[in-house]
Design a protein around this nucleic acid. Sequence first.
DNA 1: AATGAATGAGGGTTCATTCAT
DNA 2: TATGAATGAACCCTCATTCAT
Lengths: 196, 196, 196, 196
Amino acid sequence: MKDFDIREALIGSGTAEFLDHGFEKASLRTICKNAKVTTGAFYSYFEKKEDLFSAIVDPMLEAYHELYFTVVASALSGIDGNRDTELRIIEFICAHKDEFMLLFECADGTQYAGFRDRLHNDLFMPTYQACFDKYAECAVDPAVVRVFMHMKYTQYMELVYGGYSMEQIRNLVQMYAEFTNAGFISLINCIKKENI
Amino acid sequence: MKDFDIREALIGSGTAEFLDHGFEKASLRTICKNAKVTTGAFYSYFEKKEDLFSAIVDPMLEAYHELYFTVVASALSGIDGNRDTELRIIEFICAHKDEFMLLFECADGTQYAGFRDRLHNDLFMPTYQACFDKYAECAVDPAVVRVFMHMKYTQYMELVYGGYSMEQIRNLVQMYAEFTNAGFISLINCIKKENI
Amino acid sequence: MKDFDIREALIGSGTAEFLDHGFEKASLRTICKNAKVTTGAFYSYFEKKEDLFSAIVDPMLEAYHELYFTVVASALSGIDGNRDTELRIIEFICAHKDEFMLLFECADGTQYAGFRDRLHNDLFMPTYQACFDKYAECAVDPAVVRVFMHMKYTQYMELVYGGYSMEQIRNLVQMYAEFTNAGFISLINCIKKENI
Amino acid sequence: MKDFDIREALIGSGTAEFLDHGFEKASLRTICKNAKVTTGAFYSYFEKKEDLFSAIVDPMLEAYHELYFTVVASALSGIDGNRDTELRIIEFICAHKDEFMLLFECADGTQYAGFRDRLHNDLFMPTYQACFDKYAECAVDPAVVRVFMHMKYTQYMELVYGGYSMEQIRNLVQMYAEFTNAGFISLINCIKKENI
DNA sequence: AATGAATGAGGGTTCATTCAT
DNA sequence: TATGAATGAACCCTCATTCAT
């Protein structure tokens, strides 16, 4: 077996184990056993348990950041997104379900703990804040934006992890664009009125 | 130090430790040390680790169930809720932030594991499904309802755990009632059209 | 409740617990709980766990020693015992089943550990040795006597702890007197022959 | 030190500790210390405490069962046994003194608990019962048989654990064959008489 | 005299990591 | 480089005994 294969095997069994039990409760022994590798050998490929986690998650993270900065401009152009943009993002997440799940739910005890919060604060919030400010023509209370962001995020998550087919997802994206659009307009009006 | 205080101290340090590390990874030794109590003493107050968890969470759960069955009927009457009802629920959760967080995020390894899923599937979903069916005048795809439910749930969570003042929360509930209302109507129309 | 009663209650529940689990594995907590006494109170009546054991067992031991020295002379007079004597001994043991059982099987960890061996070596062996020597008219190999003694002891034990009625026991004593008698005579002849 | 030696060391110190304190009260830490091994290392060789017990006892048990079924037929042929058979059995037990002692006296808390009772009830009793029935030409009271069985068992135990030389044992077997024979005949006659 | 919470060492077991081979 | 036994601290829990009340 080539080094490459062993590494892949560890990444595979590591992903499964981390998803099942979270980083801290995951058993290195089990990961190694499932990869048909000795515990000692593990340390030829990774320095510590956490390095395996990083190896699983980092490649996607790079791709994600690339995608994000490619897409962020267009996402900013309107709150209902550009529906194509939304679909592209969702498709990307779907293509990396495991890695995102690891980052969102299984990263306690690693450097990635709090990933979701940083995502929200550093990437999403500025985007949405700008969008709100633009449409409301004033500085919108961040609390309002934050609630919106969380709901949007949740919508994505449910679409990705709800076990739906791509067709269903496309359909749901469509419907929830209507929902979000109408809601957003109503919310902006509400803000404008308050602001007078 | 009175018995009462020790029990309270254990409940306090237990809450902190469980919140920090989850039930399984929480260390009884740490809990006891922070409560300035020996590990042996712990077992004068609780039979097992999980009993401490239960002691933290159960009183709130009872109150919650009472509240739920009191409030569920009115919550069913319309999708924007009865705003008073929504506020009462949020206030309740705010008053028991820690306990809910423990149930939602830190209960793996206890009898309460999967609490959020059961809450969603057994309590929220039927409620929302009924509401959608009623307004759409047809059987709405559960996927649509589920996405909505998750978004609503997230909204509550953000209000509760976002660190807002009660006044801010009241304001946000108000605004997001507008949002949800308009969105819901738009969504229902969308469904009705499809259904023709 | 009088002191006397508490002591008795502890002796009762202690007997049960010691019989069930042996001295070392017996739980003082359980003994106290079953006697409806606090663990602290226990130490008003007994200095240590072992003292309870002694309190259970000592009164019988005294009575036993008295009996033994009363009966030993007649027991020495013939190997089939004096059947009345045998019955008296068995009846005595039957009347103190629990205490003997504690001494024989549950005393590990107490000063009484090895009770059976001391009984055999210090009381039974000399008696039986003398008997053999007398009938064989020579010094019989202690190994021969010792095997005999163990078999005799076992016979008693089975009669006492086999769950038989007193009537059955009387009958069995009768039959096994035949057995022992015939066996003994045969054995003695064998020894005499060897000795020529 | 080779793996083999460590396993053997653990089996050695485990045997000693189990014999001293019984399975449940035996301390793994002590076993490991005496084997000059850390507690963690233990679990490279055995999955649980009980597995060490099994490892000590199982090889002998297999050999025993083989022996038993080889020998049982001839043992049935007469009550004084076939003396060769008796000797073979005793020699076997002598060669596995520790293991038998563990099974008979130290197995509480393991799957082997109650070994002696099962041996008596499932193997010895049917054998002896059949023998008695055959010679007495009628169904003999099981109580009579059981007492006999216990005495016979005790005789074996004393021979094995009495610390005798093999030569002494051979001699004692011889003598006690006379004893048992004569006793048995007398007992059978007694039974026949009663039965008329 | 009676309480029962507190002690603190010890129980069996698991674990990420190390290191001699 | 690969092995997997060894480490040793930490895990939750139990216990006989003590001692302030």
